[in-house]
């Protein structure tokens, strides 16, 4: 997951871009919406002015305020600059993502709970098989977007830890 802070016409916006595959991204918008984006092509057009001078690779929540200047208002939506937004899928990370499409059968923990590595967080039924999704590290549960009975797609955020 990579976070972009954008200022468009004096308004600050934050979007989180999550790489599902090299060319497939889920973009989390501020209002909570998730947008699936497939990058079919990217190229520099004549007089490309996108040369952001920012420190990339800072820890997640560090307020690295990128400045994208002189950008026309509308086109600032989800467009990851390149295909390098790679963050190993949730491995030991902040969110637990659905490893495959399926139905959430059970949520075994609640918000605020302290979990240990290996503890079952949710049960996801995929292809009629029950799969236990377990915590990959000790952590505290921050939020659980998934509820039992939800039909989820590959890469959907099911649960988030406090960082």
């Amino acid at each position: 997951m990579r976070r972009y802070n954008l200022r468009i016409n004096e308004n600050d916006h934050t979007i989180d871009v999550e790489e599902l595959a090299r060319d497939t991204f889920t973009v989390h918008l501020e209002d909570g919406r998730l947008v699936d984006v497939v990058l079919t092509d990217h190229q520099d057009l004549a007089q490309a002015v996108i040369a952001p001078r920012l420190e990339i690779g800072q820890p997640r929540l560090a307020p690295a305020t990128p400045m994208v200047r002189d950008l026309p208002t509308a086109s600032a939506s989800a467009a990851p600059p390149a295909r390098r937004a790679a963050v190993g899928r949730a491995s030991g990370g902040k969110s637990v993502l659905a490893p495959m499409p399926g139905v959430v059968l059970n949520v075994e923990v609640s918000v605020g709970a302290t979990v240990q590595r290996g503890q079952t967080l949710l049960v996801l039924e995929a292809m009629k098989m029950k799969n236990e999704l377990k915590a990959e590290r000790d952590a505290v549960v921050a939020s659980i977007p998934a509820t039992a009975g939800d039909q989820v797609k590959h890469g959907d955020v099911l649960l988030e830890f406090e960082s």
């Binding site: 491995s91 490893p99 495959m100 499409p101 290996g118 995929a126 292809m127 098989m129 799969n131 236990e132 377990k134 990959e136």
Partner: peptide, 15 residues
């Protein structure tokens, strides 16, 4: 899938 997750519980190769 069972054998894979027996080795590493975060490994999902079911699909």
């Amino acid at each position: 899938q069972k054998e894979a997750s027996r080795e590493d519980f975060s490994n999902f190769i079911l699909m």
